[in-house]
Amino acid sequence: MVKPKVAIHSITGCAGCQLEIYFVEDILLQILDKIDLVAAPMIKEQNYDGKVDICFIEGSVTYDENIEQIKKWRENADIIVALGACACDGGVQQQKHFMDKEVVEHYVYGEERKHLKAVPPTPISDHIEVDFYIKGCPADKEEFLWFLKQLLVGKTPKQYEKSICHECKLRENHCLLEQGRECYGPITYGHCSIMCPDFNHACTCCRGPMKDANFEEHIKLLVEKGYDEQQIRQRMQKYAGLRVEKLMNNDKNKS
C-alpha cells in the first residue's frame, strides 16, 4: 500500500499545537510507519513542497503572505485540516477585532509598529476551503490521533458534536458552575480529554462555541452567579470571537 503523504505546516501562532501532536510518543513511531511525513518544518530538516494527501495547518492568517502560503498548500493537498484554535477560529490573536488596532499594536510593538503589515487575524477557512477542524488551544493529541486514524482508513471523520459539559459529567467531576465558577463547558465543543475541569480549571471556551450554543442564557446564568456581563462577553471572544459573533447574529435574526 502506498503511504499517504502528510504535511504539517504552520502560519502565525505559537506552534503549540504541533508540539502537542508530536507528544504522541508511545505510538509516534507506529504512526510514522503508516504515513510519509514529507513536510514538518518543526521536526524535519528536508521539507518537500509538492502535492500531498493530507495537510495540517496550524496558526491564523495575520498578514497577506499567509494567505498566499495557505492557498498554495490548499492547491497541493487533497485534504486540509485546520489544526488548533488559531487555524479553526482565529485563536487568541483574533481578539484584535474587538479592540482598537492602534492601541493593541502600540502596546505590543511601540514605535516599531509603523513597519507592521499586519491584517486583523482570521481563521484559515476565511481564505481557503477547509475539510476538517481539530479545535482547541492547543489541539488535543488524542483527537489528532483519532482524526488521523480515520483519514488513514479512508473515512471522512465526523466532527464531534457534544459539549464539554456532557464529557465533564461523564468524568463525574464536581460541577464548577455549581461551585460558582465561570465555566463555559455547556456551550463549548468537547473531545478535549477534559483536561481543564479535571484539574479544577473552568472551561474557557478554547474549542469554540457549539453550533447551537445558547449564548444569551449562558450569559444570564453567569450574571446570576455574580459575573460582569461585559467580562463574560469578552471571555467568549477569547479564542473564537468571530464565530461567536456570527452565531449570535444568526440567533438575533431567527428571533
Binding site: S163, C165, H166, A213, N214
Partner: peptide
Amino acid sequence: KCLSCGACTT
C-alpha cells in the same frame, strides 16, 4: 434556558 449541553441525559 436549556443550553443543550446533554448533562441531563448523561
